[in-house]
Design a protein around this nucleic acid. Sequence first.
DNA 1: GTCTATATTTGGATAGAC
DNA 2: GTCTATCCAAATATAGAC
Lengths: 199, 199
Amino acid sequence: MGQRPTICEPMLTTPTTTRDKLLRAALEIAARDGLEAATTAAIASAAGVAEGTLYRHFPSKDDLLIEVYRGIKRAVFEAISDGEAGGEAPDARLKRVWRKLYEAYRSDAEAFMFGQRFAESSLSKREGGAAHEQIAGAVSRLRAAGIERGLFKDLPGDLLANLFFAPVGHMLKTELKGRRWTDAELDATAEAVLDSWRA
Amino acid sequence: MGQRPTICEPMLTTPTTTRDKLLRAALEIAARDGLEAATTAAIASAAGVAEGTLYRHFPSKDDLLIEVYRGIKRAVFEAISDGEAGGEAPDARLKRVWRKLYEAYRSDAEAFMFGQRFAESSLSKREGGAAHEQIAGAVSRLRAAGIERGLFKDLPGDLLANLFFAPVGHMLKTELKGRRWTDAELDATAEAVLDSWRA
DNA sequence: GTCTATATTTGGATAGAC
DNA sequence: GTCTATCCAAATATAGAC
Protein backbone atom coordinates (compact mmCIF):
# COMPACT_ATOMS: atom_id res chain seq x y z
CA MET A 1 0.00 0.00 0.00
CA GLY A 2 2.50 2.60 1.18
CA GLN A 3 3.49 2.64 -2.48
CA ARG A 4 2.20 5.96 -3.84
CA PRO A 5 0.51 5.41 -7.20
CA THR A 6 1.57 7.70 -9.99
CA ILE A 7 -0.55 8.45 -13.02
CA CYS A 8 1.39 6.10 -15.20
CA GLU A 9 1.55 3.22 -12.78
CA PRO A 10 -1.38 1.26 -14.14
CA MET A 11 0.05 1.58 -17.61
CA LEU A 12 3.58 1.04 -16.45
CA THR A 13 6.37 3.47 -17.02
CA THR A 14 8.54 0.49 -17.91
CA PRO A 15 6.05 -1.85 -19.56
CA THR A 16 6.74 -5.55 -19.82
CA THR A 17 3.98 -7.10 -21.90
CA THR A 18 3.59 -6.27 -25.57
CA ARG A 19 0.22 -4.78 -24.86
CA ASP A 20 1.62 -2.39 -22.26
CA LYS A 21 4.54 -1.53 -24.51
CA LEU A 22 2.10 -0.49 -27.22
CA LEU A 23 0.05 1.59 -24.79
CA ARG A 24 3.04 3.38 -23.37
CA ALA A 25 4.56 3.99 -26.80
CA ALA A 26 1.34 5.58 -28.03
CA LEU A 27 1.17 7.75 -24.93
CA GLU A 28 4.70 9.02 -25.32
CA ILE A 29 4.50 9.75 -29.02
CA ALA A 30 1.18 11.56 -28.77
CA ALA A 31 2.29 13.54 -25.74
CA ARG A 32 5.45 14.70 -27.47
CA ASP A 33 4.37 15.27 -31.05
CA GLY A 34 0.59 15.32 -31.07
CA LEU A 35 -2.06 12.69 -31.63
CA GLU A 36 -1.55 12.79 -35.40
CA ALA A 37 2.00 11.61 -34.92
CA ALA A 38 0.82 8.46 -33.18
CA THR A 39 0.47 6.37 -36.34
CA THR A 40 0.36 2.59 -36.28
CA ALA A 41 3.83 2.52 -37.79
CA ALA A 42 5.27 4.90 -35.21
CA ILE A 43 3.61 3.16 -32.26
CA ALA A 44 4.69 -0.31 -33.33
CA SER A 45 8.20 0.85 -34.06
CA ALA A 46 8.56 2.57 -30.69
CA ALA A 47 7.16 -0.49 -28.95
CA GLY A 48 9.68 -2.64 -30.79
CA VAL A 49 7.12 -4.86 -32.49
CA ALA A 50 5.75 -5.23 -35.99
CA GLU A 51 2.85 -3.16 -37.18
CA GLY A 52 0.58 -6.17 -37.63
CA THR A 53 1.10 -7.17 -34.00
CA LEU A 54 -0.81 -4.11 -32.89
CA TYR A 55 -3.98 -5.66 -34.27
CA ARG A 56 -3.49 -8.81 -32.18
CA HIS A 57 -4.03 -6.66 -29.10
CA PHE A 58 -6.43 -3.95 -30.20
CA PRO A 59 -9.23 -3.97 -32.75
CA SER A 60 -8.08 -0.62 -34.14
CA LYS A 61 -5.66 2.21 -33.55
CA ASP A 62 -8.41 4.39 -32.12
CA ASP A 63 -9.30 1.70 -29.61
CA LEU A 64 -5.69 1.62 -28.51
CA LEU A 65 -5.66 5.40 -27.95
CA ILE A 66 -8.94 5.26 -26.09
CA GLU A 67 -7.52 2.57 -23.84
CA VAL A 68 -4.59 4.84 -23.03
CA TYR A 69 -6.98 7.61 -22.05
CA ARG A 70 -9.03 5.28 -19.87
CA GLY A 71 -5.89 4.20 -18.05
CA ILE A 72 -4.98 7.81 -17.32
CA LYS A 73 -8.41 8.63 -15.96
CA ARG A 74 -8.32 5.57 -13.73
CA ALA A 75 -4.88 6.45 -12.42
CA VAL A 76 -5.73 10.08 -11.65
CA PHE A 77 -8.76 8.94 -9.75
CA GLU A 78 -6.75 6.52 -7.64
CA ALA A 79 -4.01 9.03 -6.96
CA ILE A 80 -6.51 11.55 -5.62
CA SER A 81 -8.98 9.45 -3.75
CA ASP A 82 -6.48 8.00 -1.32
CA GLY A 83 -5.81 11.51 -0.05
CA GLU A 84 -9.44 12.07 0.89
CA ALA A 85 -8.83 11.99 4.63
CA GLY A 86 -11.63 13.48 6.72
CA GLY A 87 -11.45 15.57 9.85
CA GLU A 88 -10.18 18.82 8.38
CA ALA A 89 -12.28 21.90 7.80
CA PRO A 90 -13.57 22.43 4.25
CA ASP A 91 -11.22 25.29 3.45
CA ALA A 92 -8.13 23.40 4.56
CA ARG A 93 -9.31 20.34 2.67
CA LEU A 94 -9.87 22.30 -0.50
CA LYS A 95 -6.26 23.37 -0.51
CA ARG A 96 -5.04 19.85 0.10
CA VAL A 97 -7.17 18.30 -2.61
CA TRP A 98 -6.02 20.92 -5.10
CA ARG A 99 -2.37 20.26 -4.32
CA LYS A 100 -2.93 16.52 -4.50
CA LEU A 101 -4.51 16.80 -7.92
CA TYR A 102 -1.69 18.95 -9.15
CA GLU A 103 0.95 16.56 -7.86
CA ALA A 104 -0.81 13.62 -9.46
CA TYR A 105 -0.66 15.21 -12.88
CA ARG A 106 2.82 16.52 -12.41
CA SER A 107 4.12 13.05 -11.56
CA ASP A 108 3.53 12.05 -15.16
CA ALA A 109 3.61 15.09 -17.38
CA GLU A 110 3.38 12.99 -20.51
CA ALA A 111 0.11 11.48 -19.36
CA PHE A 112 -1.19 14.97 -18.76
CA MET A 113 -0.23 16.16 -22.23
CA PHE A 114 -1.82 13.11 -23.76
CA GLY A 115 -5.03 13.83 -21.88
CA GLN A 116 -5.08 17.42 -23.11
CA ARG A 117 -4.62 16.43 -26.72
CA PHE A 118 -7.04 13.58 -26.56
CA ALA A 119 -9.73 15.80 -25.07
CA GLU A 120 -9.35 18.26 -27.96
CA SER A 121 -9.45 15.57 -30.61
CA SER A 122 -12.46 14.05 -32.27
CA LEU A 123 -11.82 10.82 -30.38
CA SER A 124 -13.21 12.47 -27.28
CA LYS A 125 -16.61 11.99 -28.89
CA ARG A 126 -16.24 8.24 -28.35
CA GLU A 127 -14.73 8.46 -24.86
CA GLY A 128 -15.84 11.70 -23.26
CA GLY A 129 -15.20 13.03 -19.78
CA ALA A 130 -12.16 14.95 -18.67
CA ALA A 131 -9.55 13.03 -16.75
CA HIS A 132 -10.21 14.89 -13.54
CA GLU A 133 -13.97 14.54 -13.81
CA GLN A 134 -13.68 11.50 -11.60
CA ILE A 135 -12.97 13.64 -8.57
CA ALA A 136 -15.77 16.08 -9.28
CA GLY A 137 -17.77 14.29 -6.61
CA ALA A 138 -15.24 15.08 -3.93
CA VAL A 139 -15.15 18.74 -4.92
CA SER A 140 -18.90 18.86 -4.90
CA ARG A 141 -19.10 17.53 -1.33
CA LEU A 142 -16.46 20.03 -0.29
CA ARG A 143 -18.57 22.84 -1.69
CA ALA A 144 -21.70 21.76 0.14
CA ALA A 145 -19.90 21.48 3.46
CA GLY A 146 -18.26 24.87 3.04
CA ILE A 147 -21.39 26.71 2.02
CA GLU A 148 -23.26 25.26 4.96
CA ARG A 149 -20.75 26.80 7.33
CA GLY A 150 -20.74 30.10 5.48
CA LEU A 151 -17.14 29.64 4.39
CA PHE A 152 -17.71 29.58 0.63
CA LYS A 153 -19.68 31.67 -1.83
CA ASP A 154 -23.11 30.29 -2.52
CA LEU A 155 -22.56 29.82 -6.24
CA PRO A 156 -23.55 26.99 -8.61
CA GLY A 157 -21.47 23.83 -8.32
CA ASP A 158 -20.28 23.82 -11.91
CA LEU A 159 -19.13 27.42 -11.60
CA LEU A 160 -17.03 26.73 -8.51
CA ALA A 161 -15.75 23.52 -10.08
CA ASN A 162 -14.46 25.53 -13.03
CA LEU A 163 -12.63 27.92 -10.73
CA PHE A 164 -11.10 24.93 -8.98
CA PHE A 165 -9.98 22.90 -11.97
CA ALA A 166 -9.08 25.57 -14.49
CA PRO A 167 -5.78 26.68 -12.97
CA VAL A 168 -4.48 23.11 -12.77
CA GLY A 169 -4.10 22.69 -16.50
CA HIS A 170 -2.72 26.17 -17.04
CA MET A 171 -0.10 25.81 -14.36
CA LEU A 172 0.98 22.44 -15.71
CA LYS A 173 1.30 23.64 -19.26
CA THR A 174 3.44 26.51 -18.07
CA GLU A 175 5.58 23.99 -16.28
CA LEU A 176 5.96 21.86 -19.39
CA LYS A 177 7.43 24.91 -21.09
CA GLY A 178 10.23 24.92 -18.54
CA ARG A 179 8.88 27.13 -15.75
CA ARG A 180 9.23 25.11 -12.57
CA TRP A 181 6.81 26.25 -9.86
CA THR A 182 8.24 26.26 -6.36
CA ASP A 183 6.37 24.70 -3.47
CA ALA A 184 5.65 28.17 -2.14
CA GLU A 185 4.15 29.24 -5.45
CA LEU A 186 1.95 26.18 -5.65
CA ASP A 187 0.84 26.86 -2.11
CA ALA A 188 0.02 30.43 -3.02
CA THR A 189 -1.96 29.19 -6.01
CA ALA A 190 -3.97 26.77 -3.89
CA GLU A 191 -4.60 29.64 -1.49
CA ALA A 192 -5.70 31.86 -4.40
CA VAL A 193 -8.11 29.17 -5.61
CA LEU A 194 -9.48 29.00 -2.10
CA ASP A 195 -9.85 32.80 -2.08
CA SER A 196 -11.89 32.61 -5.25
CA TRP A 197 -14.30 30.31 -3.40
CA ARG A 198 -14.39 32.21 -0.12
CA ALA A 199 -17.54 34.09 0.85
CA MET B 1 -16.22 52.73 -34.99
CA GLY B 2 -19.42 52.21 -32.97
CA GLN B 3 -19.51 48.86 -34.75
CA ARG B 4 -18.41 46.31 -32.16
CA PRO B 5 -15.93 43.91 -33.70
CA THR B 6 -16.58 40.21 -33.12
CA ILE B 7 -13.94 37.54 -33.25
CA CYS B 8 -15.00 36.36 -36.64
CA GLU B 9 -15.32 39.77 -38.26
CA PRO B 10 -11.95 39.86 -39.95
CA MET B 11 -12.57 36.43 -41.39
CA LEU B 12 -16.19 37.17 -42.14
CA THR B 13 -19.08 35.16 -40.83
CA THR B 14 -20.58 35.35 -44.29
CA PRO B 15 -17.52 35.33 -46.51
CA THR B 16 -17.65 36.64 -50.06
CA THR B 17 -14.33 35.93 -51.70
CA THR B 18 -13.19 32.37 -52.36
CA ARG B 19 -10.28 32.87 -50.05
CA ASP B 20 -12.54 33.88 -47.17
CA LYS B 21 -14.93 31.05 -47.93
CA LEU B 22 -12.07 28.60 -47.60
CA LEU B 23 -10.92 30.15 -44.33
CA ARG B 24 -14.36 30.12 -42.79
CA ALA B 25 -15.10 26.59 -44.01
CA ALA B 26 -11.90 25.31 -42.40
CA LEU B 27 -12.75 27.10 -39.17
CA GLU B 28 -16.23 25.63 -38.96
CA ILE B 29 -15.24 22.07 -39.80
CA ALA B 30 -12.33 22.01 -37.38
CA ALA B 31 -14.39 23.64 -34.62
CA ARG B 32 -17.17 21.09 -34.99
CA ASP B 33 -15.35 17.84 -35.74
CA GLY B 34 -11.72 18.39 -34.87
CA LEU B 35 -8.69 19.48 -36.84
CA GLU B 36 -8.29 16.03 -38.42
CA ALA B 37 -11.68 16.45 -40.05
CA ALA B 38 -10.54 19.58 -41.87
CA THR B 39 -9.18 17.75 -44.93
CA THR B 40 -8.61 19.53 -48.21
CA ALA B 41 -11.59 17.65 -49.64
CA ALA B 42 -13.89 18.65 -46.79
CA ILE B 43 -12.78 22.28 -46.77
CA ALA B 44 -13.12 22.71 -50.52
CA SER B 45 -16.48 20.99 -50.55
CA ALA B 46 -17.85 23.13 -47.72
CA ALA B 47 -16.53 26.25 -49.41
CA GLY B 48 -18.24 25.19 -52.62
CA VAL B 49 -15.09 25.07 -54.73
CA ALA B 50 -12.89 22.36 -56.18
CA GLU B 51 -10.05 20.88 -54.23
CA GLY B 52 -7.42 22.20 -56.58
CA THR B 53 -8.66 25.74 -56.10
CA LEU B 54 -7.45 25.67 -52.53
CA TYR B 55 -3.89 25.68 -53.79
CA ARG B 56 -4.47 28.83 -55.82
CA HIS B 57 -4.95 30.66 -52.52
CA PHE B 58 -2.70 28.86 -50.06
CA PRO B 59 0.60 27.08 -50.52
CA SER B 60 -0.60 24.17 -48.36
CA LYS B 61 -3.43 23.05 -46.14
CA ASP B 62 -1.40 23.77 -43.03
CA ASP B 63 -0.80 27.31 -44.18
CA LEU B 64 -4.52 27.76 -44.58
CA LEU B 65 -5.17 26.56 -41.02
CA ILE B 66 -2.42 28.77 -39.66
CA GLU B 67 -3.97 31.73 -41.43
CA VAL B 68 -7.29 30.98 -39.73
CA TYR B 69 -5.55 30.98 -36.36
CA ARG B 70 -3.79 34.25 -37.08
CA GLY B 71 -7.10 35.84 -37.94
CA ILE B 72 -8.60 34.74 -34.65
CA LYS B 73 -5.69 36.09 -32.63
CA ARG B 74 -5.91 39.41 -34.44
CA ALA B 75 -9.64 39.68 -33.84
CA VAL B 76 -9.46 38.84 -30.13
CA PHE B 77 -6.80 41.47 -29.70
CA GLU B 78 -8.90 44.12 -31.40
CA ALA B 79 -12.02 43.19 -29.50
CA ILE B 80 -10.24 43.59 -26.19
CA SER B 81 -7.98 46.52 -26.70
CA ASP B 82 -10.74 48.98 -27.55
CA GLY B 83 -12.11 48.43 -24.03
CA GLU B 84 -8.88 49.52 -22.40
CA ALA B 85 -10.28 52.76 -21.01
CA GLY B 86 -8.26 54.27 -18.19
CA GLY B 87 -9.42 56.11 -15.09
CA GLU B 88 -10.75 53.17 -13.12
CA ALA B 89 -9.03 51.57 -10.17
CA PRO B 90 -7.06 48.37 -10.91
CA ASP B 91 -9.55 46.04 -9.23
CA ALA B 92 -12.52 47.45 -11.12
CA ARG B 93 -10.53 47.33 -14.35
CA LEU B 94 -9.56 43.71 -13.81
CA LYS B 95 -13.19 42.72 -13.67
CA ARG B 96 -14.03 44.68 -16.78
CA VAL B 97 -11.16 43.29 -18.82
CA TRP B 98 -12.07 39.75 -17.81
CA ARG B 99 -15.66 40.21 -18.83
CA LYS B 100 -14.61 41.82 -22.10
CA LEU B 101 -12.34 38.90 -22.93
CA TYR B 102 -15.08 36.45 -22.18
CA GLU B 103 -17.60 38.28 -24.32
CA ALA B 104 -15.14 38.45 -27.18
CA TYR B 105 -14.71 34.69 -27.24
CA ARG B 106 -18.37 34.02 -26.66
CA SER B 107 -19.35 36.12 -29.65
CA ASP B 108 -17.84 33.45 -31.87
CA ALA B 109 -17.79 30.14 -30.09
CA GLU B 110 -16.57 28.33 -33.19
CA ALA B 111 -13.51 30.51 -33.36
CA PHE B 112 -12.83 29.70 -29.74
CA MET B 113 -13.10 25.96 -30.32
CA PHE B 114 -10.82 26.21 -33.31
CA GLY B 115 -8.27 28.04 -31.21
CA GLN B 116 -8.37 25.37 -28.52
CA ARG B 117 -7.88 22.55 -30.97
CA PHE B 118 -5.20 24.34 -32.90
CA ALA B 119 -3.26 25.06 -29.74
CA GLU B 120 -3.28 21.35 -28.84
CA SER B 121 -2.23 20.24 -32.29
CA SER B 122 1.24 19.89 -33.66
CA LEU B 123 0.63 22.92 -35.87
CA SER B 124 1.04 25.13 -32.82
CA LYS B 125 4.75 24.41 -33.17
CA ARG B 126 4.76 26.51 -36.33
CA GLU B 127 2.48 29.27 -35.05
CA GLY B 128 2.76 29.39 -31.28
CA GLY B 129 1.20 31.75 -28.81
CA ALA B 130 -2.26 31.40 -27.32
CA ALA B 131 -4.98 33.58 -28.79
CA HIS B 132 -5.27 35.66 -25.66
CA GLU B 133 -1.55 36.11 -25.29
CA GLN B 134 -1.95 39.40 -27.09
CA ILE B 135 -3.61 40.97 -24.08
CA ALA B 136 -1.08 39.61 -21.64
CA GLY B 137 0.50 43.05 -21.67
CA ALA B 138 -2.65 44.72 -20.40
CA VAL B 139 -3.02 42.17 -17.62
CA SER B 140 0.59 42.65 -16.68
CA ARG B 141 0.18 46.40 -16.33
CA LEU B 142 -2.94 45.85 -14.26
CA ARG B 143 -0.99 43.63 -11.91
CA ALA B 144 1.78 46.17 -11.42
CA ALA B 145 -0.66 48.99 -10.69
CA GLY B 146 -2.62 46.86 -8.23
CA ILE B 147 0.37 45.57 -6.32
CA GLU B 148 1.73 49.07 -5.98
CA ARG B 149 -1.45 50.12 -4.19
CA GLY B 150 -1.49 47.01 -2.04
CA LEU B 151 -4.65 45.74 -3.71
CA PHE B 152 -3.26 42.54 -5.19
CA LYS B 153 -1.10 39.69 -3.93
CA ASP B 154 2.56 40.18 -4.66
CA LEU B 155 2.92 37.03 -6.75
CA PRO B 156 4.78 36.36 -10.02
CA GLY B 157 3.15 37.74 -13.14
CA ASP B 158 2.81 34.42 -14.88
CA LEU B 159 1.12 32.91 -11.85
CA LEU B 160 -1.49 35.65 -11.63
CA ALA B 161 -1.93 35.54 -15.39
CA ASN B 162 -2.81 31.85 -15.15
CA LEU B 163 -5.42 32.56 -12.49
CA PHE B 164 -6.87 35.24 -14.74
CA PHE B 165 -6.99 33.35 -18.02
CA ALA B 166 -7.68 29.80 -16.90
CA PRO B 167 -11.36 30.18 -16.04
CA VAL B 168 -12.16 31.77 -19.41
CA GLY B 169 -11.63 28.61 -21.38
CA HIS B 170 -13.32 26.38 -18.86
CA MET B 171 -16.41 28.56 -18.64
CA LEU B 172 -16.67 28.72 -22.41
CA LYS B 173 -16.36 24.99 -22.90
CA THR B 174 -19.09 24.45 -20.36
CA GLU B 175 -21.20 26.88 -22.32
CA LEU B 176 -20.58 25.01 -25.55
CA LYS B 177 -22.05 21.94 -23.90
CA GLY B 178 -25.32 23.78 -23.45
CA ARG B 179 -24.93 25.48 -20.05
CA ARG B 180 -25.69 29.16 -20.58
CA TRP B 181 -24.13 31.37 -17.93
CA THR B 182 -26.29 34.26 -16.78
CA ASP B 183 -24.92 37.76 -16.54
CA ALA B 184 -25.02 37.49 -12.76
CA GLU B 185 -22.98 34.29 -12.87
CA LEU B 186 -20.38 35.80 -15.14
CA ASP B 187 -20.19 38.77 -12.86
CA ALA B 188 -19.70 36.48 -9.90
CA THR B 189 -16.95 34.68 -11.80
CA ALA B 190 -15.14 37.91 -12.61
CA GLU B 191 -15.45 38.83 -8.93
CA ALA B 192 -14.05 35.41 -7.94
CA VAL B 193 -11.10 35.89 -10.28
CA LEU B 194 -10.52 39.26 -8.65
CA ASP B 195 -10.71 37.62 -5.21
CA SER B 196 -8.00 35.19 -6.24
CA TRP B 197 -5.78 38.20 -6.98
CA ARG B 198 -6.66 40.25 -3.91
CA ALA B 199 -4.10 40.69 -1.15
C1' DG C 1 1.89 -14.37 -30.86
C1' DT C 2 4.74 -12.29 -33.89
C1' DC C 3 6.57 -11.30 -38.36
C1' DT C 4 6.58 -10.05 -43.55
C1' DA C 5 4.14 -8.74 -47.25
C1' DT C 6 0.36 -6.71 -49.19
C1' DA C 7 -4.32 -4.94 -49.99
C1' DT C 8 -7.15 -0.81 -49.47
C1' DT C 9 -8.26 3.76 -48.58
C1' DT C 10 -7.52 8.33 -48.02
C1' DG C 11 -5.37 12.63 -48.11
C1' DG C 12 -2.19 16.20 -49.90
C1' DA C 13 -0.72 18.16 -53.92
C1' DT C 14 0.06 18.94 -59.19
C1' DA C 15 -0.97 19.22 -64.40
C1' DG C 16 -3.37 20.93 -67.87
C1' DA C 17 -7.85 22.18 -70.10
C1' DC C 18 -11.22 25.83 -70.01
C1' DG D 1 -9.16 31.59 -61.29
C1' DT D 2 -11.51 27.53 -61.36
C1' DC D 3 -12.36 22.76 -62.59
C1' DT D 4 -11.27 17.74 -63.75
C1' DA D 5 -8.26 14.21 -63.63
C1' DT D 6 -4.46 12.21 -61.74
C1' DC D 7 -0.14 11.18 -59.15
C1' DC D 8 2.14 10.02 -55.04
C1' DA D 9 2.82 9.15 -50.30
C1' DA D 10 1.28 7.64 -46.11
C1' DA D 11 -1.73 5.35 -43.03
C1' DT D 12 -5.03 1.66 -41.57
C1' DA D 13 -5.84 -2.89 -41.68
C1' DT D 14 -5.52 -7.89 -43.28
C1' DA D 15 -3.47 -12.49 -44.91
C1' DG D 16 -0.68 -16.09 -44.28
C1' DA D 17 3.88 -18.06 -43.04
C1' DC D 18 6.64 -19.21 -39.00
